[in-house]
Nucleic acid binder design. Structure first.
Length: 656
DNA sequence: ATGATAGGTAAGGGTAATAGCCAGGG
DNA sequence: CCCCTGGCTATTACCCTTACCTATCA
């Protein structure tokens, strides 16, 4: 099974009833009660029988099914000695004909989502394969798996898998398992945490090692370190582990650094002679001629060896970004090319950037220097959108089509793209990023009310300004807390809805029912400072969404925004417990002097919160935009990530 | 002895972010 | 002439895959 082999004989069992629950990460947990029969762990030992769940749909396995769902399944014993077990399923639904309808030649054929329904994806994540034969075997059996950079979703899943593993075993620190335990002690660790990830076990292993190795992500090498590294290199050769240990860096880090510093390396501008030599060597090694486009299949280490004065990275970079294009008579990149690029990508109609085949896209395009260069060009275009990381790819693309065609005066600004809905909005909205506080609409959805189908107006609107007004609609009512002027908001489903308002410590806010309308709470700011207000939510059954700002003329100054940013980072510190690279990214989001507001952390918090009583939780995308059916009239919406939920955070931190 | 399992190492292709250079405009 | 700005180039830290190796165990 580990290499995809299906055991010759399997025992089929059926259970009459199972219980479904949903965990905080949205995984469906299927609880199978202890079987009275003899099959489940009948030897009475603590070692559970390995089970695989087969999901059969009622209508068979028709690949033309309008909805195809892929499941990744793992069975986990609940407690030792208990013969019941849990099944965690991660399901991915694809809409009718998505992907399949694309021209296959336009899509990189390397993503899990192209899998056929019912395929056992766990065969990949449970297999430790590094050799070509192992790979071929799996490929021949029709398995496909994810390669390339890990997406945020994958990392999140990995982290939650690790958390679950830790919880089940009462371990607090994952590094204990990864770096301290023996193989025997950490038996099944990697298999367990690889579940749901359509990646080879080995890839998961590498990723985890990197993630939790605190000697990774150390940052720039100082001159002192470089000198020390040179000495260590002379002493220990290619024993990267030893060198790394001596330097307080990971082995791969020192190895990578050494690759950059050949003794004979020149830096700075390439001389004509160097360029000539590079071209000569590349053509010689690849059996090509001057004018041929060579972008792959080059051994850069060999090239560097022969060029003599440059490292492999320098050679590759020079070739792919300049020399090959220059030699083959390339033309300069123009603004029209920018527009063209965005349109061409849009025409591909791909769901995700990873599906873009840059080789094909670059083909026959004289101003494109190489597929790799084109990709980096895309990056520079993409980064004109401040919140590009948070946007769904199709939304970003649509927005960019407007952006690249916009006048230069607009192009020079950082733009934020937002869309009320990726589906409903005919065209996405672009807006200059001006620091502005936006109102927040909180909609409670009762059990009977579907996701986003909030036909009833149950809204609270928080307007910006010193006087905060909440409009209370029918399903909410106020409940005195005992403190005059302070109320709890009570929802129609009888769930208390503690809504706390906090702000800068210098600002005190109190809430009171409006004398004119009992359906309003009026918040008074007790200071004259019109500080930014943070609404802390502590209720999962709530839709949080940004709404039209009728008044965007209430800019906050930079210091206020920075304060806000700090507040959020502080509150979300617990989320990122791995030292993963995102952390530093979050901190360096200062683009062109405008603080980019980022609510991704906040979103994670809310997103992974528990759900109860059928209440539906929808959260804003990190930029504050979520699909909604409601008719919202704005063209200019600016996100402000001020919604935090300490309780939910605690829930997540404290338990699951 | 053999093959499977579960790592582990090294090499090298690659990405993404940023630093640095430089030309052009005010 | 100076300064600023933006585009391009070069650099670099980190990521990922591949090939190969090794210890342990059934």
């Amino acid at each position: 099974m580990n290499t995809g082999d299906v055991p010759a004989a399997v025992t089929l069992e059926s259970v009459s009833s199972v219980t479904f629950t949903q965990d905080t990460d949205g995984n469906i947990i299927l609880h199978c009660p202890q079987n009275d029969g003899e099959d489940l762990g009948s030897d009475g030992t603590t070692e559970p029988v390995h089970k695989r769940l087969r999901l059969t749909s009622e209508d068979g396995e028709d690949p033309q099914d309008s909805t195809s769902t892929e499941y990744s399944v793992v069975t986990l014993p609940i407690t030792e000695g208990d013969e019941s077990f849990e099944v965690t399923m991660t399901a991915t639904e694809m809409r009718d004909g998505e992907l399949e309808s694309e021209d296959p030649s336009e899509i990189l054929d390397k993503d899990s989502s192209v899998q056929k329904k019912g395929e056992d994806v766990s065969a990949v994540s449970q297999a430790w394969f590094t050799t070509k034969e192992d790979k071929d075997t799996l490929v021949n059996k029709g398995h496909k798996w994810k390669q390339g950079m890990w997406s945020k979703e994958e990392i999140d899943l990995l982290m939650s898998n690790i958390e679950r593993y830790l919880k089940n075993r009462g371990i607090h620190d994952p590094t204990e398992i990864i770096f301290e335990m023996s193989k025997e002690e950490r038996k099944d660790f990697y298999r367990s945490i690889a579940c749901g990830l359509n990646r080879p076990l080995f890839a998961v292993y590498r990723r985890v090692l990197r993630m939790y190795d605190n000697r990774n992500h150390v940052g720039k090498y100082t001159d002192e370190e470089i000198n020390k590294l040179k000495r260590l290199r002379e002493k220990y050769g290619n024993d990267w582990a030893t060198i790394g240990a001596a330097l307080g860096r990971s082995a791969s880090s020192v190895k990578d650094r050494c690759r950059l510093m050949k003794d004979t390396c020149n830096t700075g501008k390439w001389t004509e002679e160097e360029e000539r030599r590079l071209a000569e060597v590349v053509h010689e090694l690849t059996g090509t001629e001057v004018g041929d486009v060579v972008t792959q299949g080059v051994s850069w280490a060999s090239v560097a060896e022969l060029v003599g004065t440059r490292s492999e990275k320098q050679c590759r970079s020079k070739w792919l970004n300049y020399l090959n294009w220059k030699q083959s008579g390339g033309t300069e990149w123009t603004k029209e090319d920018d527009i063209n690029l965005v349109h061409r990508i849009a025409e591909l109609g791909v769901e995700d950037e990873n599906y873009i085949n840059w080789d094909i896209l670059a083909g026959g395009w004289s101003s494109v220097r190489s597929p790799q260069w084109l990709r980096s060009k895309w990056w520079t275009i993409k980064r004109q959108v401040a919140n590009h990381k948070e946007l769904p790819f199709p939304v970003l693309l649509k927005g960019l089509q407007d952006v690249v065609e916009a006048p230069a005066s607009v192009m020079n600004k950082v733009v934020v793209i937002g869309s009320r809905s990726a589906n409903a909005s005919p065209s996405p909205v672009t807006a200059l990023q001006i620091p502005v506080q936006i109102p927040v609409q909180i909609t409670h959805v009762s059990s009977s009310d579907g996701a986003g189908g909030s036909s009833e107006s149950e809204t609270i609107t928080l307007n910006s300004g010193a006087l905060q007004t909440f409009e209370l609609l029918p399903s909410f009512h106020l409940q005195p807390t005992g403190t005059p002027g302070t109320y709890f908001l009570q929802t129609g489903t009888n769930q208390s809805l503690p809504l706390t308002l906090s702000a800068n410590p210098t600002v005190t806010l109190t809430a009171a029912a409006s004398p004119s309308s009992p359906d309003q709470i009026i918040l008074h700011s007790l200071t004259t400072d019109n500080e930014n207000v943070t609404v802390q939510m502590s209720h999962p059954g709530i839709i949080i969404q940004t709404v039209t700002s009728e008044d965007l003329s209430d800019p906050l100054d930079q210091s206020e925004l920075e304060g806000e940013q700090e507040l959020k980072e502080e509150s979300s510190e617990n989320q990122n417990n791995s030292g993963e690279e995102e952390r530093s990214e979050e901190r360096s989001k200062d683009i062109q002097g405008v603080k980019t507001l980022d609510s991704s952390k906040v979103e994670e918090t809310v997103e992974s919160s528990g759900m109860d009583e059928g209440a539906v939780l929808m959260v804003p995308s990190p930029s504050g935009f979520i699909p909604t059916n409601e008719d919202i009239r704005t063209d200019s919406v600016l996100p402000l990530g001020t919604l935090t939920d300490p309780i939910l955070e605690n829930q997540e931190e404290g338990s699951d």
